[in-house]
Design a protein around this nucleic acid. Structure first.
Length: 744
RNA sequence: GCGCGAUUAGCUCAGUUGGUAGAGCAACUCAUUUACACUGAGAAGGUCGGGGGUUCAAGUCCCUCAUCGCGCACCA
């Protein structure tokens, strides 16, 4: 190449590609262009006003800290979908936001305050919430800057927060409607109480962990005819029955009788022998001590047999009955006391080591204590008039069964159905301060105050979008809502609902795609389907794409405590966000866990540089011609190459539409490197030097045209380097690559 | 207990409706200043977890077993 030609090349190409000095500028270029916002795209004429919409909400990250590499993977997959849709000319909206994540955020802030020696009750509700808000804002700002670093092309002008004013209106509106339809009710039931977090949690927030435990077999007293087995002897002071199977000959004669035990470790018991089909004759002694206040199953049995419920454990997991031996003791201490008592009384028959699953609160790690409490629930089994008398359960099932929602990969449909079949009423009230306050007020009356807390139910209730007018006569329910209640509304609360005429709502709902982690299929995906099918009579999204977990190179879960977590910002800084994105996409099918290693990231950094050098060669060796997009004088040899390339582009487009990004990324990589660079460019060196003019021009046009097309299909995957190179391509009437047309 | 997934080259994974086993990374041999060393060329590497079946033909379909991972339920 002579010097004159090299003079036409941007001096940037004299050095290797430098993501550090490029990426932030490119992101700013996009932001300034306004093209993340579909309205601007229409205004500036890059998108047709009548174009088909493509809409997606960002699964809002929790404002509990910073983004991890799993978020980076999520953002990359979604950004690929969005950039592809935008380049296809669709009216493309990717709506960002963050999640207040009630319990998670509150307990995080509590922990931080604890280190300073401050308890939340010392601060009071208002001041504590101030502290949480400051923390949340800080978190939010970090998250936003991280998202920009990764290259997420979200429409910042529409950013939402699950706990802001607009979302609060949506929550109140939804609550009131459900309350009026009788779907939300207040009930006194056995709930999952988290003694550590001092709040009720839903069934889905309980995780099970295998632990070693002891199972004790004993009798309540010497004269009691039946032995029972338990792992929790301390709860037995709350027993009101012993249940046996009706067909069990051993116990037949006792059914229906009631025994009084005057002294069971200091507590008087009345035990009725009942027959219940649910009892397994072969398990333990074939007889179950029924503790209605502290077991879900027992409570149901108590309901069937009209048994009294005696609460013996309080919210601090301490005993509230008995004498000084157990009263006010922690359940675990009381257990030892009761076991010792049984032993000395000669009532303990057997003591065996077993492994059992214990219930743990997901967020706090507290051991869940089933307690009877007055809480708010969503009834999933009540027929709904406006919805053909279908229940919420049925609405949720129908949405997927009918094909209205397509789940990728489809094996998650079975998981979803399985969950719904076992679904019980959803407990939505939480005894925490951070969150949407329940829009219910109770009338103040002297009598009710005298009646005390157990008669809360008798108070006059007002439920409304706004507080009652004579507010001084009312107390608002102190509880807040499960964070997933507001998340369930996310696809439409972000688009202007409850204003049904909001333009965004009419244009973009139902959304086209929900991309999220398979671990929140129940928490979030199912709840969005519930809310949308009930409130709007339509699905929240037409497609769901699940991604798996990002693990380390050895396949271990990444965690801060293991020290194997890769910080997406650190590696992006080191290798460039494009390289990180590629490494997170390739080799990762939907729903499958993937592995992340620095080796892999490094390989794609090299690829970015390869593309850089390819461009340098193509530009410097074609600078004597003018690129013509409609060039038609190709040689036969080049026509063959064009066919091959277009075949590749066609396949790629098809696979993009099938969401097979893990394949497309790899194919582009391969075509660019092993085909275009290693073979076609190598051959071109001779052609461009030695052939006739027709061949030279044909090849030069082909090289430019192909590079342009590579940049386009690669853009969703590696947006920064492609946009940077695009800016230096000798093309007339060039737009930003982000809004260029997909090449096929 | 019920269900789901995985098992293919040293590692990570592809493999469409059955039709001669594929890629990246790593390792190996060679080239040595090239658009690019963040490089190029080449070669090597596999009884597709085991067993059985259907078929002209099975990595792919059916049955079964094993190992690993996960979900749900139970958890007296």
């Amino acid at each position: 190449m002579d010097t004159e030609q090299n003079n036409n090349i941007n001096p940037k190409f004299l050095n290797p590609y430098n993501p550090q000095s490029t990426e932030d500028n490119i992101y700013k270029l996009w932001e300034d262009s306004g093209f993340f916002n579909p309205d601007v795209c229409i205004e500036k004429g890059v998108t047709d006003e009548n174009a088909k919409p493509f809409s997606m909400v960002l699964p809002p990250p929790n404002v509990t800290g910073t983004l991890h590499v799993g978020h980076a993977a999520m953002l990359t997959i979604e950004d690929i979908m969005v950039r592809f849709a935008r380049m296809q000319g669709k009216r493309t909206l990717w709506l960002p936001g963050t999640d207040h994540a009630a319990i998670a955020t509150q307990s995080k802030v509590e922990k931080i305050l604890e280190k300073e020696g401050i308890k939340k009750n010392d601060l009071g509700r208002e001041e504590f919430l101030n502290r949480v808000n400051i923390f949340a804002q800080d978190s939010h700002d970090t998250i936003v800057s991280q998202m920009k670093k990764i290259g997420a092309s979200v429409d910042w002008s529409r950013e939402a927060f699950t706990l802001d004013g607009k979302r609060n209106l949506a929550v109140r509106t939804a609550f009131k409607k459900m309350y009026e339809d009788g779907l939300i009710y207040r009930g006194h039931r056995i709930v999952n109480w988290d003694p550590k977090g001092q709040t009720v949690i839903s069934d889905d927030e309980v995780i099970h962990e295998e632990r070693k435990a002891k199972m004790y077999t004993f009798k309540y007293s010497k004269d009691f005819p039946i032995s029972i087995a338990t792992t929790r002897p301390e709860t037995k002071v709350g027993d009101t029955a012993v249940a046996v199977n009706p067909t069990d000959d051993r116990y037949k004669d006792f059914i229906g009788k009631t025994y009084t035990i005057e002294d069971f470790c200091g507590v008087k018991l009345n035990i009725k022998i009942i027959a219940d089909e649910s009892i397994d004759k072969d398990f333990g002694t074939g007889a179950l001590g029924v503790t209605p206040a502290h077991s879900q199953i027992d409570a149901e049995m108590a309901g069937r047999h009209n048994l009294p419920t005696i609460q013996v454990i309080n919210e601090y997991a301490k005993m509230i009955v008995g004498d000084e031996r157990i009263l006010n003791k922690k359940t675990t201490e009381a257990r030892n006391v009761v076991v010792e008592w049984l032993r000395t009384e000669g009532l303990l028959e057997k003591e065996e080591d077993i492994t059992q699953n214990i219930s743990i609160a997901e967020r706090t790690g507290g051991i869940v204590e089933p307690l009877p409490k007055l809480q708010w629930f969503i009834n999933v089994n009540k027929p709904i008039k406006d919805r053909n008398n279908k229940t919420l359960k049925e609405l949720m099932l129908d949405a997927v069964r009918s094909g209205g929602i397509n789940i990728i990969p489809d094996r998650f449909e079975k998981v979803y159905y399985n969950w719904i079949e076992n679904l019980r009423d959803w407990c939505i009230s939480r005894q925490i301060w951070y969150g949407h306050r329940i829009p219910v007020w109770y009338k103040k009356t002297i009598t009710n105050e005298e009646l005390g807390i157990n008669n809360e139910n008798t108070k006059e209730i007002y439920c409304g979008i706004n507080p009652p007018e004579d507010i001084e006569n009312w107390d608002q329910d102190p509880d807040t809502l499960d964070t997933w209640f507001s998340s369930g509304l996310w696809t439409f609360s972000t688009l202007g609902w409850p204003d049904l005429n909001a333009l965004d709502f009419k244009t973009y709902h139902p959304t086209n795609m929900l991309e999220t982690g398979s671990d929140i299929i129940f928490f979030w995906v199912a709840r969005m389907i519930l809310m949308s099918t009930y409130l709007l009579g339509e699905v929240p999204f037409k497609n769901v794409y699940f991604h798996g977990l990002v693990r380390d190179a050895q396949g271990k879960k990444m965690s801060k405590s293991l020290g194997n977590a890769i910080d997406p910002l650190v590696v992006s800084e080191k290798y460039g966000a494009d390289a990180v994105r590629m490494s997170l996409i390739i080799g990762t099918g939907p729903g499958n866990d993937s592995r992340m290693s620095e080796d892999k990231i490094r390989a794609y950094k090299n690829y970015a540089n390869k593309l850089w050098n390819i461009t340098r060669f193509v530009l410097s060796s074609t600078s004597n011609i003018k690129y013509d997009a409609d060039f038609s004088e190709y040689t036969d040899i080049d026509k063959v190459l064009i066919n091959e390339r277009d075949e590749f582009l066609k396949e790629t487009t098809k696979e993009m539409e099938e969401y097979k990004f893990y394949i497309v990324g790899e194919k582009i990589y391969q075509y660019t490197w092993t085909r275009f660079a290693d073979v076609i460019i190598e051959e071109s060196k001779n052609i461009l030097l030695e052939s006739d003019d027709k061949s030279k021009i044909s090849r030069a046009q082909f090289l430019l045209d192909t590079l342009i097309k590579i940049l386009k299909v690669l853009h969703p995957f590696m947006p920064f380097v492609t946009e940077e190179i695009w800016g230096m391509m000798p093309i007339d009437e060039k737009k930003l690559l982000i809004v260029e047309k997909w090449p096929i």
